[in-house]
Structures are given as structure tokens and as C-alpha cells.
Nucleic acid binder design. Sequence first.
DNA 1: GCAAAACTGTTATGAAATAACATAACTAAA
DNA 2: TTTAGTTATGTTATTTCATAACAGTTTTGC
Lengths: 161, 161
Amino acid sequence: MGVDCHHTESAHPGLEGVALADAVAAAVNKCERTRERLTPPRRRVLELLLEADGPMKAYDLIAAYGHDGEPAKPPTVYRALDFLERLGFAHRIESLNAYVPCRMEGTSHRAAFLICECCGAAQEFEPDFAPQFAAAESAGYAVRTVTLEARGLCPACKVEA
Amino acid sequence: MGVDCHHTESAHPGLEGVALADAVAAAVNKCERTRERLTPPRRRVLELLLEADGPMKAYDLIAAYGHDGEPAKPPTVYRALDFLERLGFAHRIESLNAYVPCRMEGTSHRAAFLICECCGAAQEFEPDFAPQFAAAESAGYAVRTVTLEARGLCPACKVEA
DNA sequence: GCAAAACTGTTATGAAATAACATAACTAAA
DNA sequence: TTTAGTTATGTTATTTCATAACAGTTTTGC
Ligand SMILES: [Zn+2]
Ligand SMILES: [Zn+2]
Ligand SMILES: [Zn+2]
Ligand SMILES: [Zn+2]
């Protein structure tokens, strides 16, 4: 992101220890309830996303995949990301080519992000797309998914701007 | 897009002849007023976007660049696209890795698109981001740009779905 | 069990974007 | 009108991002 950014405080510091275990356990539970399979590679990629301080690039995940330092093969990670996105455990941020774990509780939602162009933080929020959605539908469009990405400066970076 | 899509009618058929010349002339005028330089490669890429029936990939533009069939070098086209985006003559659609000419009259606006997942059409519309914008600002965020991409089925493709 | 479906491992390739550096063309002051 | 500063282009090579294809394995339902 900003090459000159020294605002190291992250909006979403990575999870560790109990918090990480809890988050993974919640995903395991949700998958059991919905008869989905949180297989080892899927679980590993979810862990990596949860542990990260910010959006992770696919090849960051590939590099970090093996506990022994061995990277994954690209399809392994991309397939896991497809699964995690499909189930709502992760989101792709198009304007960054990067991925984050979902921070919203609800089962289904439309993703929206505030992205800091200085420190790279990405904050998920629950958008109200009602107006845009209604406009699209009234124009005959059948909307399936909506993504919104707002780029600018986070509070921390705005100060020192 | 949809490999099985036969809905050839485009929401934005490419410009030809006088309409194309007019659109280019309008860009020339706007650049003269603002002391920006619509140089040959920039103008050529703008033409290609205006002539196209839908979103164009960067490498489509690269392949189509030369009137004699000679492709452009990638940086030529990417630099031109940067310029066109900066001046509001074109938009990048993140979820497609593709580009369209701006269809809105106003000088400054935030881009939003309805994207058909069947036929690939991308319809620009003027969004009202007031609620999201206000929420972001009240959270301390200084928003610079917002992009919204709604994916689904256009009226034509919805019928035959 | 057995067959179908879903998932993984692996190799290779394709698609998208940029780094780096040399050259050329405008622009405006000296 | 030199001359310096800025902006834009040409070119080569490389990096980054993502998927195709296919063989083999595990799970699931019958
Ligand atoms: Zn989410
Ligand atoms: Zn920041
Ligand atoms: Zn526009
Ligand atoms: Zn369509």
C-alpha cells in the first residue's frame, strides 16, 4: 500500500490462540450443520486468513501454507478460497486481488469494504443497498451479488496525512 | 461470460461513423479545456473502447490496437487506460478485469455497474451512495472513491434463464 | 460392496499487469 | 532560443494472478 505508511496498528489484528481456535470451531460447527466439508486444505486457508493482520494475496497464502515452510500448489489455495467464499467464510476484495475472512456474524450478507490506501487495512461493514437494489430490479435486472469497495484513508492514516 | 448465452443484443452497441467521431471530438474538447493531452495512443484506446459492444479486456485492446493488425505493447495500453480513467473517460470493472467508456454525461461521478453474468453486458448507472458514504465518514474514514458492481442477469437474459 | 460425486495432488500453461530504462516531445523560465 | 524540467512514449523483460487438464483419492448414497 502506501510505501510511506508507518501506521502499523491494524483495524483487525490477526487472531491467535483461543480466539483463533474459537473462530475455527465456529466454522467447523457451521459446516457440520450444513453438511459441508471443511477439509484440511480449506481449514488451513481459513486459519491463515484469520491469523493475518489484513488482506492476504493468494500467493501469500500459497507461501504460508505449509507448517514446515513448504508452499502449497496454486490450485490448492484457489480451490479453498472458492469454497470459503461460497460459504461466506471469506471475501475477495477485487480492487486488491486479496482475501479476508468474513467479519460479519450473519449467515448471508452482501460484502462491502472500507479500504485504506495508506496502510492497506480493509474494514468490512454491513451495507444497505436497498436503494440501488430497488433501482436495479425496477430496470429489469435480477441482481445476484453486489460488491462495494470504498477506498480512502482510515482514521489513523488520515491524521498523519 | 455465459458460454451458452445467445442474447446478442447489447445494451451499448459500439459507436460507429458520426457517433464515434462526435464522442471522440467531445473528448478532444474536454481535454483542450483542461489542458490535458489526448495523445495518439490515448485517443486510439478511447476509440477502441467506444467502438466495442461491451467491456474490453486490456489484452483485447492490445490485440486490436494497430490499424494494420499489429498489436500494441502492454504498457502502451495500460498507460492509456490509466489516463482515461483519471480523466473520467473510462472505467475499470474490477470483477471483470475489463474496461468500458464512461456513459455518464456529468464531469465527476462515482461509477457503478450492473453486470450481466450471462451476456457480459455492463450497464453504468448513477448510484446514490449517500448512506454508505455518510456511514464511512462518521466512522472516521475519508472516502476518496467508491465502486459498486452488481452482478446478475439483464432483462434479456433473465427471460430465457 | 459399488457407483457416482466431490475433493485433492500435480504439471503445465494462460492471462493480467508492471518494472526498468532509454528516448522523444512538450513547456516554461532564463 | 537555449536550456532545464516535466511529461509521455518505446521497448524488453519480468512478475503477479489464475486456471486447464487429468490422474488418483475420499466420501456419500444406494
Ligand atoms: Zn463478510
Ligand atoms: Zn490506514
Ligand atoms: Zn462513468
Ligand atoms: Zn445478459
